[in-house]
């Protein structure tokens, strides 16, 4: 296991977050904050000194209660945020599904959005043309291709977003609780697709509150609690410990 290529190396990472409060009661407070440079910026450490290594082909689940820093961790790995301290090394192409269809424009049609979103993910227009049919078929939206996206239901948007993001075989797939809105049939379809990708050697990072899904898909689990890594390792041990803690 150890001789496999390290895909993601998170080394003692701390991530800052801006928690600036919008509420300023009076002029004095305003000036004090201005002097302390807190008006626009108030530091909050969302992730504190977390390290873990993901090897090729592994599927890691990130679990923890709401607000524990899971999504921030994923954002840092996707390159959206830079770590404040520590380093993150990523080897290979990343397909982040932090939110399905980030970059969808509500006024544009689904057809236009497929190209737009594909390019947001770094593909070329030509490449998107080649895979257009595949995406439409998987998302099952052929009848609505030329309606503006604002008329789509959230489930349909999610389907479209998922098909675009997983159309290519990325080296690393990052999924953040995005499938929660899809219907049962589509969730099954997504799980199958992720399994396919995993079998093809893709590395998966998966955030979910659904422990059963994590157990089905993941080989390893990182449990984050209040920004700190509480436990990490093989899926079974960590999920058991997590469930035991949650039931307390």
């Amino acid at each position: 296991m150890e001789d496999r290529k390290v895909m993601i190396d998170v080394d003692h990472v701390t991530i800052r977050f801006n928690l600036s409060k919008q509420k300023v009661d009076n002029l004095k407070e305003y000036l004090v904050k201005l002097m302390k440079r807190e008006l626009m910026f108030q530091e909050f450490l969302a992730v504190k000194d977390v390290s873990f290594k993901v090897h090729q082909g592994e599927a890691w689940g990130l679990i923890g209660v709401n607000g524990s820093g899971k999504s921030t961790m994923l954002k840092a790995i996707s390159g959206i945020m830079k770590p404040y301290k520590g380093t993150i090394t990523v080897n290979g192409s990343v397909a982040p599904l932090i939110e399905l269809g980030a970059g969808f424009d509500q006024e544009m049609t689904a057809r236009e959005n497929i190209f737009l979103n594909g390019c947001v993910l770094g593909h070329s227009e030509k490449f998107m043309k080649e895979h257009f049919e595949e995406i439409v078929d998987f998302a099952d939206v052929r009848d609505f291709l030329d309606s503006p996206l604002k008329n789509y239901s959230s489930g349909m948007k999610a389907r479209l977003g998922f098909s675009i993001a997983t159309m290519v075989k990325p080296d690393i797939l990052i999924v953040d609780e995005v499938l929660a809105v899809g219907d049962y049939k589509f969730r099954q379809k997504c799980e199958r697709r992720m399994k396919e990708l995993l079998d093809g050697g893709t590395t998966l990072l998966y955030v979910s509150h659904n422990i059963d899904e994590v157990r089905r898909l993941c080989t390893h689990v990182l449990w984050i609690d209040k920004g700190q890594a509480k436990m990490q390792g093989k899926m079974q041990e960590v999920t058991d410990a997590y469930m035991a803690e949650m039931k307390k």
Binding site: D105, E107, M108, E112, L116, C119, V120, G122, E125, K126
Partner: peptide
Amino acid sequence: WKYRDLLKLLVTKNIKLKYR
């Protein structure tokens, strides 16, 4: 260079939406 198509699409989007 990698994102040049995105630039193209964003420009067409701005122009299309303006007069749609």
